[in-house]
Design a protein around this nucleic acid. Structure first.
Length: 807
RNA sequence: GCCGAUGUGGCGGAAUUGGCAGACGCACCGCACUCAAAAUGCGGCGAGAAAUCGUACCGGUUCGAGUCCGGUCAUCGGCACCA
C-alpha cells in the first residue's frame, strides 16, 4: 500500500544515527538569548559508583527528559544539566581496598556513567557538566563555607561519632550493623569528638515558611515539616530541693503541669556529675549512663522496648505550681539533644511517661477530665477539661495552656517557647575523599578562615588514605600540607584536617550549572537571574529530609547575604518510586537481582527501555522490574514502526481517526504534566490498536502520534518522521493541540441501576443534562420493564455515566 | 518506636477524585498464517452453573465507597556519618 521504503525496525542503528545528529548540531544546547522564556529541569546528579548506572537512574532522567523535550516544542529555552556527585565513602573504601587513588576511580566511574547515559539519548545540556571533585567546583563549596563561618553559622562542638574499638576507625552509620562494625564485627561505641557544625536550626522557621511558597508534592512538604518538628510549649524550672539549682524542662503540655509526678533527665545531663555526692546510688547511675552511651538514639527512643531507668536517690525536685516534692530519674528515652535534655513526666497524659510510671510504680494523677486512664494515657488535646489543677480547673486544654504560660511568666518560673526537632548539621568527616575545610588552627589566633584569594584549598594527592588510629582524618599524616602559616598573625599554624560531608557539594550544584566555568563567582548574577529558581526538580523520596533540606538551607543563606536572586532554590519538586528487582526486593549484588541497563539496551534498544521505564507502573510508586514487560514495549515500537505500511499521503488528520487522535492528544498532554506516564503511553497504545483495526491512517494521523511519542522515544520518532518525508524534524515541531470539538461523541452508553445495582446499559444522547436524562431514561422500554409495577421514589442521574432509580 | 507512603485478577497496574471495578501491558489459552516451529495478525482471559460475589481485614457514612470516616494487619522509604 505504501510507497515508502523501510526495512525492519533496527534500534541500534537508528539510535546511534540520531544521537550523532543531535550531538553534531548541538540540538539541545540552550540559547544565550536571555529574553526568551526559560525552563530549568533538574534531576538529582548521580553518585558515580563503581557498579555503573542502575536502572533506577533512567527512570528519573527519562521522566525529566520527557518534560524538557516537550518544553522545547512549546517554545521554551531549556536547561537540563547533568553532573557528578563524586566525593564520598564508597569510592574511598574501594580505593583503600584496591589500592587505586580515589581520583582515578572517580574518573573511571564518571566515564562509564557518561557512556551509559549517552547511550540512552537524554537531551542533557552536556556543556554544563560539573563534578563536585573538581577544584574549580569545590573552590566555591569552600567559599560558601567561609561565608557561613563569617556569618556565625559554622561552629565547633563536641559530637559523638561511631568508633570501632577494634579497627580504631570512625564509622558511618551504614557501616555499623546491629551495633557492631560491619568489617570486623568489633564493638562500636560512641566517642566524642570536636567537630564542625552548621547552624541549620537558625533557619528552621524560614525553612517551614518557605514551603508555603513552592509547588512541592504534599508528602514532601509534610515530611519536611515533621522533620523540622516545630512545637510550641514552655520551658519550666523545677527547683532541686535544698539548693539554688533548677532543672529546666521543655514541655509541649504545660497545661498538665499539676499532673507531673516525677522528672527524668537524660543520662548525659550535667547535674548527674554535679550532684555526684548527694546521689546515694551514684554507682548504679554511672553504670546506667555507660550502658546508654553504647546505644544509638534510634534504639533509645523505641517505644516497643521495655523502659529502663534509675532513680537519682538523694535528690528531689519541687513542682513549682503546687510545691509537691517529686522524684528525679534518669532514663535513656530522654535525649540530651532535644529540648533541655530533661522532662517533667505526666504519666496520665503521655504514652512513654505512662509506661514508665506503671513499670516503676510512680503515682499517676489525672489532670484532664472526661476520659479513662486505667490502661493507657489520654493524649487527645482536643477534648476534655482540666481537673485536679487548681486555678486551671474547668478550662479546655487550649485555654489552660495559654493561662499557665501567662502564670509561669508572671511568676518568673518559666516561659512560652517554640522548639524544633531539627538539629544542627554535623559538617566534619574524618575522611580523605571530601572537600578540605578551609580553616587554619593557630595557637595564638584560634580558628582562622583562609582568605578567599587562597581558594581553592587543594586536597593533596597522597598514597595512604586510611584513617589514623586516633580517629583523625588521613590528612594528619601529610605534614607539608598540615603545617602552614596563620593567615592572621603569620605564625606557624596547622590546617583543619577534617573534610566536608558529601552533602556539601550537592547543596548548591544547581547554581553552578547556570554558569559552570565562572572563575570569579559561583555563577554570574545574569545567569542566576535568568535560570533560577529551578522550575522542576525530580528526585527520590529518600532525599527529602537531608539533601533537599540542606540545599534549601544553603540557598536561603546565600539569598540572605545577597548572592542568589531568589529565596527558594526549587519551584517544583516531584518524586519517583524506586525500581525493585524482579522478585520485588531491592536490587543488590548480594541478592543477585541486579538488572544492567547495558544488557537491556543491547537487547531492545534505548527507546523501548525508556518506554518501559515510563510504562511499568505509577511513576511515584516503587515497582518491580520485569524483562518480559520491557520486551512488550519493544513489540509496541515494532508495531508503531510498521504503521508506515498503511500510511496514506493525506496531510491532515483523517476523518476516520480525528476523534481518536484528538482524545489521545488531550490525554497525553495532560498526563505528561502530571507525570502519569503509564496512562499516557496506554492511550498511545490504544490509538495504535485503532490504526491497526482500520488498517489505514493518514500522514497527519501518524505525525500527531510521532509528536506525542517523541519525548519518550525520541530516536524512532525522528527516524519515522524522516522516512515518511514529513517536513523538518520532530524536535522542531510545535506541540500538538487538541481540537476539543472533535472529541465529543453524539451518544454515550450509561448504566441503569435499580437500588444501586446495575441492571442494564443503554445508549442516550450525550447532550442531556441531569433532569433531561432522568426523564429520558424513564421513557425507555428496557427501563420500564425493569421497574415493572414498583413505585419510583427517586431518580439520581449523572450525565455521561449512570442513572440510579430508587423504587 | 516515630514520621511519610502503599495494599485492586496469575503478574505490573487503570478507574475523569464519591458514579459502569479490572483501561493498557505481561503471562497464559484458542484461531489464522506455516510442512512445522518461531515471528506476526485476530480473539479470549477475576470467581461462580446461575442468582450473584469480588478492590488487605473489621465496622461506619451515603441512593451509591477501591475512593470518605474510625479501628486492625501487612509491606516499602526516612530516622540526621550510604547517597
Amino acid at each position: 500500500m505504501s510507497h515508502y521504503e523501510f526495512g525492519a525496525y533496527n534500534p541500534a542503528a537508528i539510535e546511534k544515527k540520531w544521537q550523532k545528529i543531535w550531538e553534531d548540531n548541538n540540538t539541545f544546547e540552550p540559547s544565550k538569548d536571555y529574553s526568551k522564556p526559560k525552563f530549568y529541569g533538574l534531576i538529582e546528579f548521580p553518585y558515580p559508583s563503581g557498579n555503573g548506572l542502575h536502572v533506577g537512574h533512567p527512570r528519573s532522567n527519562t521522566a525529566m527528559d520527557i518534560i524538557c523535550r516537550k518544553r522545547r516544542m512549546e517554545g521554551y529555552n531549556v536547561l537540563f544539566p547533568i553532573g557528578w556527585d563524586a566525593f564520598g565513602l564508597p569510592t574511598e573504601n574501594f580505593a583503600i581496598k584496591n589500592k587505586i587513588h580515589p581520583e582515578i576511580v572517580t574518573k573511571k566511574n564518571i566515564e562509564r556513567f557518561k557512556k551509559q547515559l549517552k547511550m540512552l539519548g537524554f537531551s542533557f545540556t552536556w556543556s554544563s557538566e560539573v563534578s563536585t571533585t573538581d577544584p574549580e567546583y569545590y573552590h566555591w563549596t569552600q567559599w560558601i563555607f567561609l561565608q557561613l563561618y563569617k556569618a556565625g553559622l559554622a561552629y565547633k562542638a563536641e559530637m559523638p561519632i561511631n568508633w570501632c574499638t577494634s579497627c580504631k576507625v570512625g564509622l558511618a552509620n551504614e557501616e555499623v550493623v546491629n551495633g557492631v562494625c560491619e568489617r570486623c564485627g568489633g564493638e562500636v561505641i560512641r566517642k566524642v569528638k570536636s567537630q564542625w557544625m552548621l547552624k541549620i536550626t537558625e533557619y528552621a522557621q524560614k525553612l517551614i515558611d518557605g514551603l508555603d511558597t513552592v509547588d512541592f508534592i504534599e508528602k514532601v512538604k509534610t515530611q519536611e515539616r515533621n522533620w523540622i518538628g516545630r512545637s510550641t510549649g514552655a520551658e519550666v524550672d523545677f527547683k532541686i530541693k535544698g539548693t539554688d539549682d533548677n532543672i529546666r524542662v521543655y514541655t509541649t503540655r504545660p497545661d498538665t503541669l499539676f499532673g507531673a509526678t516525677y522528672m527524668v533527665i537524660s543520662p548525659e545531663h550535667k547535674y548527674i556529675d554535679k550532684y555526684k555526692d548527694q546521689i546515694t546510688n551514684f554507682d548504679e547511675v554511672a553504670a546506667y549512663r555507660d550502658a546508654a552511651s553504647k546505644k544509638s538514639e534510634f534504639e533509645r527512643t523505641e517505644l516497643a522496648k521495655d523502659k529502663t531507668g534509675v532513680e537519682l536517690k538523694g535528690i528531689v525536685a519541687i513542682n513549682p505550681v503546687n510545691g509537691k516534692e517529686i522524684p528525679v530519674w534518669t532514663s535513656d528515652y530522654v535525649l540530651s539533644s532535644y529540648g533541655t535534655g530533661a522532662i517533667m513526666a505526666v504519666p496520665a497524659h503521655d504514652d512513654r511517661d505512662f509506661e514508665f510510671a506503671k513499670k516503676f510504680n510512680i503515682p499517676i494523677i489525672q489532670v484532664v477530665g472526661g476520659c479513662d486512664i486505667k490502661d493507657a494515657a489520654f493524649t487527645d488535646i482536643n477534648s476534655g477539661t482540666m481537673i485536679n489543677s487548681g486555678f486551671l480547673d474547668g478550662l479546655t486544654v487550649a485555654e489552660a495552656k495559654k493561662k499557665i504560660i501567662e502564670y509561669l511568666e508572671e511568676k518568673g518560673i518559666g516561659t512560652g517557647k517554640v522548639n524544633f526537632k531539627l538539629r544542627d548539621w554535623v559538617f566534619s568527616r574524618q575522611r580523605y575523599w571530601g572537600e578540605p575545610i578551609p580553616i587554619v588552627i593557630c595557637p595564638k589566633c584560634g580558628y582562622v578562615p583562609l582568605e578567599e584569594k587562597d581558594l581553592p584549598l587543594l586536597l593533596p594527592m597522597i598514597d595512604n588514605y586510611v584513617q589514623t588510629d586516633s580517629g583523625e582524618s588521613p590528612l594528619v599524616n601529610v605534614p607539608e600540607w598540615v603545617n602552614t602559616k596563620c593567615p592572621c598573625c603569620g605564625g606557624p599554624a596547622k590546617r583543619e584536617t577534617d573534610t566536608m560531608p558529601q552533602w556539601a557539594g550537592s547543596s548548591w550544584y544547581f547554581i553552578r550549572y547556570t554558569d559552570p566555568k565562572n572563575d570569579k563567582a559561583l555563577a554570574s548574577q545574569e545567569a542566576m537571574k535568568y535560570w533560577l529558581p529551578v522550575d522542576w526538580y525530580n528526585g527520590g523520596m529518600e532525599h527529602t529530609t537531608l539533601h533537599l533540606l540542606y540545599s534549601r538551607f544553603w540557598h536561603k543563606f546565600l539569598y540572605d547575604i545577597g548572592v542568589v536572586p531568589c529565596p527558594e532554590p526549587y519551584q517544583k519538586r516531584t518524586s519517583h518510586g524506586m525500581i525493585l528487582g524482579e522478585n520485588g526486593e531491592k536490587m543488590s549484588k548480594s541478592r543477585g537481582n541486579v538488572v544492567n541497563p547495558d544488557d537491556i539496551v543491547s537487547e531492545i534498544g534505548a527507546d523501548a527501555f525508556r518506554l518501559y521505564e515510563m510504562f511499568m507502573g505509577a511513576f511515584d510508586q516503587p515497582i518491580p522490574w520485569s524483562t518480559d514487560g520491557a520486551r512488550g514495549c519493544y513489540r509496541f515500537l515494532e508495531r508503531v514502526y510498521k504503521l508506515m505500511k498503511f500510511v496514506t499521503d493525506e496531510k491532515e488528520i483523517s476523518k476516520e481517526h480525528e476523534k481518536g487522535v484528538n482524545i489521545t492528544i488531550k490525554k497525553v498532554t495532560e498526563d505528561y504534566e502530571k507525570m502519569k506516564y503509564n496512562t499516557a503511553i496506554a492511550a498511545m497504545m490504544s490509538l495504535v490498536n485503532e490504526f491497526y483495526s482500520s488498517n489505514s491512517l493518514s500522514k497527519g494521523d501518524l505525525a500527531a502520534l510521532l509528536k506525542l511519542l517523541y519525548p519518550v522515544c525520541p530516536h524512532i520518532t525522528e527516524e519515522m518522521w524522516q522516512l515518511v518525508e514529513l517536513p523538518g524534524a520532530v524536535h522542531e515541531q510545535k506541540w500538538p493541540v487538541c481540537d476539543e470539538s472533535k472529541t465529543v461523541p453524539s451518544e454515550v452508553e450509561i448504566a441503569i441501576q435499580i437500588l444501586g445495582k446495575i441492571k442494564a446499559r443503554i445508549n442516550v444522547p450525550a447532550s442531556l443534562d441531569r433532569n433531561q436524562l432522568s426523564e429520558y431514561v424513564l421513557t425507555n422500554e428496557t427501563v420500564k420493564e425493569l421497574i415493572g409495577d414498583k413505585t419510583v421514589r427517586k431518580v439520581i442521574a449523572v450525565p455521561g455515566s449512570l442513572v440510579n432509580i430508587i423504587v
